[in-house]
């Protein structure tokens, strides 16, 4: 199925996704008593990186440049199937839940290979943590979406989030949907390498996860990685926002506006979480992620009652 209305939020995503980073950073700056970087700083950085040339390690193979490209392409494709606050996505088919989740997997697969391609011990470490944590986060994501699918009796993301709005205030849906929202928040933080799972601004490579994987990337490759990261932030954010704020209006523009506002509020929330929480010790992260699975399983069980 194809929906022309879905192009609007997707266009907004492609243009505005990096802005989410600046919202997070501004929030953190406010908490730290600083003024923070300009709103358009992520764009300046992307533009700078695109103009620069790249340095490649002698160890690497073409996989090293392929990784960022596949990652970016897969995330962008997945975004075409994700609805924002009830607006039908550009494409939808029954079963696209899996397609979107597994596309994120493809993106990760190639990024991990690109990291291992350098032969650096640090990047091997980051790659290792990335696959480890995402293997634990993936069941939580899919089970949460299953719970929502049961509620709205649909197999496509468009249908799931589209039907959610009409009925969400029914009391029976309350607890399970809250649990799903909590699980999705954990997945959102983990998959986007945010505190408390990963610290995007840490300076010690030994404690990094995502950042250490991309140490060797530079120039346009690095720009692609950053851009793909912002798209992923937008994508997982819309999945979460669709549950928490299932307010729908009849008008397309109003819906999109509401969705975007909620996304930016989510970014503010992320900034607050990053400001008030410490990063978990790495050995505790699996428990955190398994807790997300537990939440989603409980939600599913409650939903089936």
């Amino acid at each position: 199925m194809f929906s022309i209305a879905g192009c609007l939020p997707v266009l907004l995503a492609f243009c505005g996704a990096p802005l989410l980073f600046s919202v997070i950073n501004r929030t953190k700056a406010k908490f730290a008593g600083r003024r923070g970087a300009p709103w358009l700083q992520p764009y300046f950085e992307l533009a700078k990186l695109l103009r620069k040339s790249a340095v490649y390690s002698r160890t690497t193979t073409p996989l090293f440049t392929l990784g960022p490209m596949v990652s970016c392409a897969a995330t962008a494709t997945a975004l075409l199937f994700v609805p924002l606050s009830g607006v039908a996505p550009v494409f939808a088919f029954p079963g696209d839940v899996l397609w979107v989740v597994y596309l994120l997997g493809t993106s990760r697969f190639f990024m991990v290979l690109a990291a291992l391609d350098t032969g650096s011990s640090f990047e091997g470490m980051g790659a290792n943590r990335e696959v480890f944590f995402s293997a634990l986060a993936e069941p939580a994501l899919l089970l949460s979406l299953t719970t929502l699918a049961v509620w709205s009796q649909s197999l496509s993301l468009g249908g799931i989030y589209g039907n959610l709005g009409a009925v969400v205030l029914a009391p029976a849906a309350g607890p399970p949907l809250l649990l799903v929202a909590a699980a999705l928040l954990i997945v959102f933080l983990a998959e986007n390498a945010r505190i408390p799972v990963d610290d995007p601004t840490t300076h010690l490579e030994l404690t990094m996860i995502h950042e250490v994987m991309i140490l060797d990337h530079s120039g346009p490759d690095f720009a692609l990685i950053q851009y793909a990261a912002s798209l992923r932030l937008w994508l997982l954010g819309s999945l979460l926002v669709g549950v928490v704020v299932p307010w729908r209006s009849a008008g397309l523009v109003l819906n999109v506006l509401a969705g975007c506002t909620c996304l930016f509020l989510l970014a503010v929330l992320t900034g607050i979480i990053e400001s008030v929480m410490a990063r978990l010790r790495l050995v505790r992260v699996p428990e955190f992620l398994i807790a997300a699975s537990v939440l989603s399983i409980v939600a599913l069980v409650l939903m089936m009652r």
């Binding site: 029976a172 309350g174 607890p175 809250l178 428990e287 398994i290 807790a291 537990v294 409980v298 409650l302």
Partner: peptide
């Protein structure tokens, strides 16, 4: 009140998980 009762019960259950994981 049934929804609130459900919410309380779900919180109780989550507290059980918390005890297991902490």
């Amino acid at each position: 009140m049934a929804a609130w009762l459900d919410a309380v019960l779900v919180l109780l259950m989550l507290s059980g998980f918390w005890l297991l994981g902490s």
